[in-house]
Design a protein around this nucleic acid. Sequence first.
DNA 1: CATATTACAGATATTTAATATCTGTAGTTG
DNA 2: CAACTACAGATATTAAATATCTGTAATATG
Lengths: 161, 161
Amino acid sequence: MQLRNHVEWALHCAAVLAALPEGHYLAARHLAELHGVPREYLAKALQALSQAGLVETTLGPTGGYRLARAPHAITFLDIVEAVEGKASSFECTEIRKNNPCRAKNTRPIKPCSIAAVMWKADKAWRDSLRETRLSDLIGMVQNEVDPETLKKTIIWISERI
Amino acid sequence: MQLRNHVEWALHCAAVLAALPEGHYLAARHLAELHGVPREYLAKALQALSQAGLVETTLGPTGGYRLARAPHAITFLDIVEAVEGKASSFECTEIRKNNPCRAKNTRPIKPCSIAAVMWKADKAWRDSLRETRLSDLIGMVQNEVDPETLKKTIIWISERI
DNA sequence: CATATTACAGATATTTAATATCTGTAGTTG
DNA sequence: CAACTACAGATATTAAATATCTGTAATATG
Ligand code: SF4
Ligand code: SF4
């Protein structure tokens, strides 16, 4: 069970957008260059964020992406579900119905306790992701990147917005 | 992000094995028929359980699988990790190192808070799975399957062990 | 208005992982 | 010995992830 790398990309892009000065847009090609990932493919992840209403976009030169809500109002879960979907990680294929001993006139099968346990764990995962907001990142990430790189990056971005 | 159906199969097989009378083995082909899944492929999942030490096997006629420990001592997490692996669902590909502004003589990158949040959520998922034991299932599942089918199934199994 | 630039949907291609089957080996039972 | 089992390893098939391409409509700038 592996999350797609769209998740990592989307989280990083959201973190960058959260640090953008008010009102400015950053284009997909810059986000792609900054993270060293294929531009056309990253665009798909960004479009997923857009469809989920997490970012808003504008066209033309100086166009691009910016957050649609304050970083405080966007959780990790919002981003993960935007690109990865809301479907549970456990999908029950109802193999019970294949039981050769199954009585013909049985009442309709309802989800059992095996599925319930798996779905509960999936919920615990999502609940955990919901606890952290984009705003929680801002201070942290800046402490983790070395000052020289951070400074350069801020300038690099400021030249492109 | 989707769990392989090996997980569902392994859980169902473990549930059946947990209900088996003491000391008896049930062969892979019977487990496959009971669940209506391809025998050779299910065998892979069962072998994963074997390698994880959750079941023990014996060869020859009357051979097959049985639990290696009491149902009370086997958690959902044991089974899920046996077939799905212990690797986190979030794999960091270190895209930070692609930053064109990154200073050359930077100190080695250590995992950041983005990864920490994702790993924490993965841990929450595993913690939840660890809470339920195979023994918790026994009563539940029997209440969920209709009595007629349950009775037939018990007989069906008893003829094959 | 003309041009360059953007997001975006949809189609397509490539690569990787999941699913499924097959083969041969060795241990076990009667 | 004969029939049956688990099991590892190779192989084939199918689905999904990854990546690219094309065309369209919107927007800013000169
Ligand atoms: S018994 Fe539970 S997990 Fe298994 S197929 Fe039925 S609902 Fe799904
Ligand atoms: S360690 Fe953090 S910043 Fe670096 S690539 Fe992983 S998630 Fe991104």
